[in-house]
Design a binder for these strands. Structure first.
Length: 855
RNA sequence: GGGCGUGUGGUGGAAUGGUAGACACGGUAGACUCAAAAUCUACUCGGUGCAAGCCGGUGGAGGUUCAAAUCCUCUCACGCCUACCA
């Protein structure tokens, strides 16, 4: 009886061996080409989940493959270690955030190691370590000095009971997630980074990222939101209420200026504030809007006529009313618009409600002017100008140009490019984050710390029993001196947004223990990252901030390149079936069973019917989580890795099924049985090759090519299919033919390398079983073996079609000529039957694929 | 409202203009076994036929082509992102 494959023993053995022999340690080596691959680093929540397993299995496959291709591979790992959960745990379990975080890291590090990843653990970093965050404090000071970091008033979500600032996702239905109190908007002075200074570059450089998914680039493009238009100044008709003389309005549809029947400004517009001082009607309206802003998110348009009027820029003596409207945003453009109801749906809705004029000024090309009427739908398409004086008859494009020229020429407008992208607010009123290195002096001055004084370390003696930010209450820590004058001062108690840490960690991997932020030569050698792999949920924020950071650090002269990640891959989620009771309560998979008689799922306890929920992303609240740790223990890391690659393409969602993992497990064991068998058999086999061997060897060559191409193309599910096929061929050939010792060894030696990137442990074990020296991971990726195959023709299947419909399949020599193929096909009975005496009009021949007779 | 994506067997998915359903899961039957598990073998899109085969078939309707899951037009459904961005 054959010994069963013991995955626990084997996997542990090779993990120890790899570590002992420092196989994955890397160093700068200018003589070799580098390959920098990394996956998004995890938040140390306590345990890894299946999403991590998929992410790291994917990356590890590529990393091992590239290493075997002879590249100098850097594959590091770290921890995104600051964040709110550590503080929540501190409040709940009375454990210090640092202690909680480091203990989670050590658990998760072991879990990741049990996956058998080819990580250079010597480069491990944790962002909560002062030796990491001191560098970003330095960046902040340098950015501040360059004017790229600044302070301004900004609204935050404020929980009045917990006395704390809430993140957007902590506000549920306008209430604090923990206290349930109604969330208020509070104006706080906060730190910002000037991402907007790089809007244009962030947008235009997307074009250089040809190894990024189009989808991600599109999402970033939309987020940056460039729009070209004009700022028009509307002169205000003399009014007692106002000191301002004009209202600045941004538009991209200056061509519709003759259709303007009102102007609208935001509630937060300075003019609105000024009017509200003298008009109680306006004041009441603004207060009402501010109240319903966060409770009522439906899009009802509300406005109030301010009584102020402005002059139309082209129609002499014609005035239009100025409204304050809830749909005009202060944060975009100039916080004021002109309303052209005929050609903007929002303006039309507003005009109908407040009985304002609707003047159509663009008509569709297909309709005459008399036929064209605006009812409840604004016309936003292209067309020809009407009712517009000197613009009549022009196209939209020409009219835009004509209006811009005339208005700019007279000084009543400027060309203007607007971006939706706003500056990045980085202040968080939190303890567990990187302290912002500035002090507030007694005399009111804000002074950045001296770089020599860094790091500003988080205090350890903290009290989490109270409300609010513990740093703010820590008088001892807050008390300091001005680094320049020595005058007494107080520390900034806000900490950085955790996206700050993740915006540059890839750079730190290049020289993780260097005294300064970066060792220039290391950065120059390793950067940019060749392949970055992670979830699509970071398509905008993390990836955009990292791109911004890279450009900002470049401008601080740390290096010369502009983009951090030349290749990006976004993998899909891991999903799982959900179950719910008739009452709609989520059920654990263990609590339900399949009743084979009734063909329905039922609950164990009360035998009631169970409804199959949707297949959804694994989440604790839906009870559809599978724990990687127990899977790895039960089936082994190779099985888990194999399953992660099988079935679904890596960019799509992968559905976790019990039968799927079982199937993978069976296959791993099948591989083992087969190679053990072959190893025994080869010892009594004939020595050298004969005709019988060629089918196996030719298949091997064929699959070396397929597998290599599929790895290069990230078609890992197809790689899996290829290996299934190749294994099955090997098994059949071995059992049915008298193969030689030489070809069996050649086959297994290549096979073991082909499977290595996916299932490295069993691959090493087979390598050893066959008496080889060293390790598979140190070998070169297999190339096709040379075959003196002259003695056997390569036969291919050729489909014979009549009028494009396949009627027969013949086997021919792969390099057969068209004429020869035709001759053979013509004798085919099927062709005789269908073609008969009919005339053949045309013959289409695609070598090795089809031969089509058109009748 | 806007943008993007996806629709192929019982299921996950192959095929990116050239034999639709590779490979896997599940299922059915058989071999081995006292029995079960494991393993191995065969079959598994629908219709029809003893069979060789024939017919239909990639959400739906048209079109281009010798040939369409693939390209074009319209349409339906689902998913994701985003949202009063002037």
């Amino acid at each position: 009886m054959m010994e069963k494959y013991n995955h626990q023993k084997v996997e542990q053995h090779w993990q120890v061996e790899w570590e002992k022999r420092k196989v994955f340690s890397t160093d700068t080596d200018l003589k070799r080409n580098k390959y920098f691959i990394m996956e998004m680093f995890p938040y140390p929540s306590g345990r890894i989940h299946m999403g991590h397993v998929r992410n790291y299995a994917l990356g590890d496959l590529v990393a091992r493959y590239k290493k075997m291709m002879g590249l100098n591979v850097l594959h590091p790992m770290g921890w995104d270690a600051f964040g709110l959960p550590a503080e929540n745990a501190a409040r709940k379990e009375k454990s210090a955030p640092a202690k909680w975080t480091y203990s989670n890291i050590s658990v998760m590090r072991n879990q990741l190691k049990s996956m058998g990843l080819s990580i250079d653990w010597d480069r491990e970093i944790a962002t909560c370590h002062p030796e990491y965050y001191k560098h970003e404090q330095r960046f902040f000071i340098e950015l501040y000095k360059e004017g790229l970091a600044y302070k301004k008033e900004s609204m935050v979500n404020w929980d009045p009971i917990d006395q704390t600032v809430l993140a957007n996702e902590q506000v549920i239905d306008g209430k604090g997630w923990r206290s349930g109190a109604k969330v208020e908007q509070k104006n706080l002075s906060q730190w910002f980074l000037k991402t907007s200074a790089y809007s244009e570059e962030l947008l235009s450089d997307l074009e250089t990222l040809d190894k990024w998914p189009e989808k991600v680039k599109l999402m970033q493009t939309n987020w940056i939101g460039k729009s070209e238009g004009v700022e028009i100044y509307f002169k205000i008709k003399k009014s007692d209420m106002l000191s301002s003389e004009k209202i600045k309005v941004f538009t991209t549809r200056q061509d519709t200026i003759y259709g303007a029947t009102f102007c609208a400004i935001s509630c937060d517009h300075p003019i609105a504030k000024e009017i509200s001082k003298s008009s109680s009607r306006v004041k009441n309206f603004i207060e009402k809007i501010n109240k319903i802003k966060f409770t009522n998110d439906d899009e009802e348009k509300l406005g109030v006529d301010t009584g102020v009027e402005v002059f139309h820029p082209f129609k002499e003596n014609k005035t239009i009313p100025v409204f304050i409207a809830n749909f005009v945003l202060m944060e975009y453009g100039s916080g004021a618009i002109f309303g052209c109801p005929a050609h903007d749906q929002r303006d039309l809705d507003f005009a109908i409600k407040y009985k304002l004029d609707v003047i159509p000024v663009v008509r569709p090309n297909s309709l005459k002017e008399e036929e064209f009427k605006i009812k409840n739908e604004a016309y936003t398409e292209d067309g020809l100008l009407i009712n517009s004086d000197f613009l009549n008859g022009m196209t939209v494009v020409d009219a835009k140009k004509a209006v811009s020229e005339k208005l700019c020429g007279s000084g009543s407008a400027n060309l203007k490019i607007n971006y939706k992208l706003r500056d990045w607010g980085i202040s968080r009123q939190r303890y567990w984050g990187c302290p912002i290195p500035v002090v507030y002096r007694e005399d009111g001055e804000i002074v950045p710390e001296n770089i020599e004084n860094l790091p500003i370390i988080l205090p350890e003696n903290i009290d989490f029993t109270g409300k609010g930010n513990p740093l703010d209450k820590n008088e001892e820590w807050k008390k300091t001196k001005c680094p320049i004058t020595g005058m007494s001062a107080k520390r900034e108690t806000d900490t950085f947004d955790t996206f700050f840490e993740s915006s540059w960690y890839f750079l730190r991997y290049c020289s993780p223990r260097f005294k300064d932020p970066f060792d220039y030569d290391s950065i120059k050698y390793w950067m940019p990252v060749d392949q970055y792999i992670g979830g699509i949920e970071h398509a905008i924020l993390h990836l955009l901030y990292s791109r911004f950071f890279t450009k900002a650090l470049r401008d601080l002269k740390y290096f010369q390149f502009s983009e951090p990640f030349s290749g990006l891959f976004t993998q899909g989620m891991v999903t799982h079936q959900t179950y719910r009771s008739k009452e709609g309560v989520w059920l654990k998979p263990d609590d339900v069973y399949f009743d084979t008689a009734e063909k329905i799922y039922k609950k164990f306890d009360d035998r009631k019917d169970v409804e199959l929920g949707r297949v959804e992303k694994m989440s604790k609240s839906k009870f559809n989580v599978v724990d990687p740790d127990s899977i790895i223990k039960k089936y082994g890391a190779d099985t888990a890795r194999w399953y992660m690659m099988s079935d679904s393409p890596p960019d799509r969602d992968l559905e976790w099924t019990e039968s799927g993992i079982e199937g993978s497990f069976k296959f791993i064991n099948k591989i083992w049985r087969l190679v053990v068998d072959i190893n025994k058999g080869r010892k009594i086999a004939k020595k050298s090759r004969s005709n019988e061997d060629y089918h196996l060897l030719r298949s091997l060559n064929n699959y070396i090519e397929k597998i290599t191409n599929n790895i290069e193309g990230f078609h890992f599910n197809k790689v899996i299919a290829n290996i299934y096929e190749l294994t099955s061929i090997a098994q059949k050939e071995y059992e049915s033919k008298n193969l030689s010792e030489e070809s069996l060894s050649v086959f297994v030696n290549a096979y073991v390398k082909l499977i290595h990137p996916i299932i490295p442990h069993i691959s090493e074990e087979i390598w050893k079983l066959f008496g080889n020296k060293g390790m598979v991971i140190e070998q070169r990726w297999p190339e096709k073996i040379s075959l003196d195959s002259v003695n056997e023709k390569v036969l291919v299947k050729l489909a014979i079609q009549i009028n494009g419909k396949t009627r027969s399949v013949i086997e021919v020599d792969s390099n057969i000529s068209k004429e020869k193929a035709e001759n053979i096909a013509m004798k085919n009975s099927k062709v005789q039957k269908y073609a008969g005496s009919k005339k053949i009009k045309k013959v289409i021949y695609v070598p090795n694929k089809i031969l089509n007779f058109v009748l």
